[in-house]
Design a protein around this nucleic acid. Sequence first.
DNA 1: TCATCATTTAACCAATTTGTAACATCAATA
DNA 2: TATTGATGTTACAAATTGGTTAAATGATGA
Lengths: 225, 225
Amino acid sequence: MHEILIVEDDPDVREILAFNIDNAGYATIAVSSAEKGLDRLSSKTSLILLDVMLPGISGYQFAQKIRNELRNNTPIIFLTAKSEEKDLLAGFNAGGDDYISKPFSINVLLARIKAVLKRYDATAPTQDKVYQHNDLIVDAVQKTVLLHGKSIELSRKEFDILTLLCANPGTYFSRTTIIAELWKDAPYVLDRTVDVHIARIRTKMGDYRDFIKNRVGFGYYIEKA
Amino acid sequence: MHEILIVEDDPDVREILAFNIDNAGYATIAVSSAEKGLDRLSSKTSLILLDVMLPGISGYQFAQKIRNELRNNTPIIFLTAKSEEKDLLAGFNAGGDDYISKPFSINVLLARIKAVLKRYDATAPTQDKVYQHNDLIVDAVQKTVLLHGKSIELSRKEFDILTLLCANPGTYFSRTTIIAELWKDAPYVLDRTVDVHIARIRTKMGDYRDFIKNRVGFGYYIEKA
DNA sequence: TCATCATTTAACCAATTTGTAACATCAATA
DNA sequence: TATTGATGTTACAAATTGGTTAAATGATGA
């Protein structure tokens, strides 16, 4: 059973949405503001239906917060009143998100929900990705890293690099390969950029600093379990 | 041998791509339009490199046609000029496709091609790139060499040379051939450089030092199993 | 807007690898 | 076996690679 979080300030629209989506066989939680949405967001949430125009924290800001601060990848369908807002949402499309312009028919919305959930579930098997190596646990779902049971704070790029390495222990990654995998938008950064990220990860790992190894001429790697 | 279909209208870009990809050991077919791309697409095509901005049928439409009408699942790497076009591609991300934003370095593109092909080939039987001769095991995947069960440390060039020989036992490799195979980016080193590398490998192989044999006037080789 | 953090570039140094040259040795054959 | 060209060895020089720090740039949030 999928749980869908609806964030919409207009009480009428909110009720119509909740009623129909509920009727279609999903569990719904409907709230009137981003603040309340934050409260009700949980690991059980399968999809967020998010009005872009909200009082207080806007839907867009809410989405950013979820993605950047909470490191939460729950798919989002934005409800936009004006089609111009598509631009604003450009940055989110990569994450498998979607938008739908008001007014929309309930059937279209339900079809869209189904499609997004299907897409999300398709990747789901990949999502049980938690990598453990001795005392280091990299959780690619929660986007967290635990070292000796203590959480260590990595930036986005740092996290992505560590995840790439941990997902493929025993495999060498040259700087170029790492850039090819992780810098899809700006694939022209210098090789040395990778070094610096690696250095910072190592620093944050303290006594585990040589967890990420390097073999001259081959690349960075971590040892096979 | 993988065949890569390049669809790019800019003749300069097209030629640069074809030249470099060809050079990297792939077979290439380069065309200037989606229409021509459709003609040249076949079951032998391993990967499509597709410019999003094409005259006539756009790259995006071309991709849709391939997927929806032809039911063809050949992986696609989209070449996008503007990062905004990411949204357009959102629908394709599920299919294991990829995108890369211009401008990109050729090396990064090659790394990406390699990664995509590897991912795509993951289902195919893994070609075992491990060569064993008596007590010597050369693992071209892990990049390790075991001698009498003990790991010996080779540098990159040393490893590449040993791998080349072990992958083709019974075949003579002249210095010139070895340089042509392994010094693709700088094929102007002296012949004698190879000798030195061979000497260093032999030293590291200790009692196995005459595992790499030489036949005067023919070249280096190892004996057929 | 400003302040803050993340990212990227640049510069420096150390370590390692790679390439060259010089010399020693070997193998083929006259 | 003497000659000659090919191969093996060694020492050194050059180039590449990797680690680190600081400064410049870019993104994000109050």
